[in-house]
Amino acid sequence: MYTRPLARLIEELQRLPGIGSKTAQRLALHLINRPAGEIEALAKALLEAKQTVRHCSICFNWSAEDPCEICRSPQRDPSLWCVVADVKDLMAMERTREFKGLYHVLGGLISPMNGIGVDQLHIRELVARVAREKPQELIFAISPSVEGEVTMHVVKDYLKPVAPTLRMTRLAFGLPMGSELEYADEVTLARALEARQEL
């Protein structure tokens, strides 16, 4: 049906997350319509990103430089760290522009079903880094799932011996800002009720 190179392009695009066969087709037909320069720039950007972007050796954020931009920044508060599961979560925290500390990316959550344990994550690196740099507080910004809970408690347990006085906190459970109470789902509302605060 399609000529071979176009079919191959569609196949490649289809392997990307969130892209089905229809979207892949649309993207391929769009790309083939663009000027050659634009496509070269895209191809170059892909290659360059792949060749230069590495994990930051300190916090495991993606970066072309090592240490990453955040770890090197003099404007950041080195006593306050945020522990996240994934770079996606780091980006979400950055979008708030409210957090001025450093990060540590774990690279996932503990999940025995998928063979992910302490050794598959950057937990030992975090322990060594805490022992070396002695921050004052770690904020766990981890999604509230079963796996997230276990990961947080395991990390806390690993940190206890090296930093007995380190303050460890987690994000609150609660209602999305600007939301209507009546539309909140029952589980969120029930958790918000449990974690209610003094007025």
Binding site: I110, S111, P112, M113, G115, G117, V118, V146, E147, E149, V150, H153, V154, D157, Y158, P161
Partner: peptide, 30 residues
């Protein structure tokens, strides 16, 4: 998840009572 852990690495899933003091708790405890 717990059943998966019970089936795998015996190091991670040693019963609490057998874990040596001072060590990290085995993952199973969590």
């Amino acid at each position: 998840q717990r059943n998966a852990l019970l089936k795998q690495d015996p190091k991670d899933s040693v019963p609490l009572t057998q874990a040596t003091a001072g060590d990290q708790l085995p993952q199973m405890a969590f």
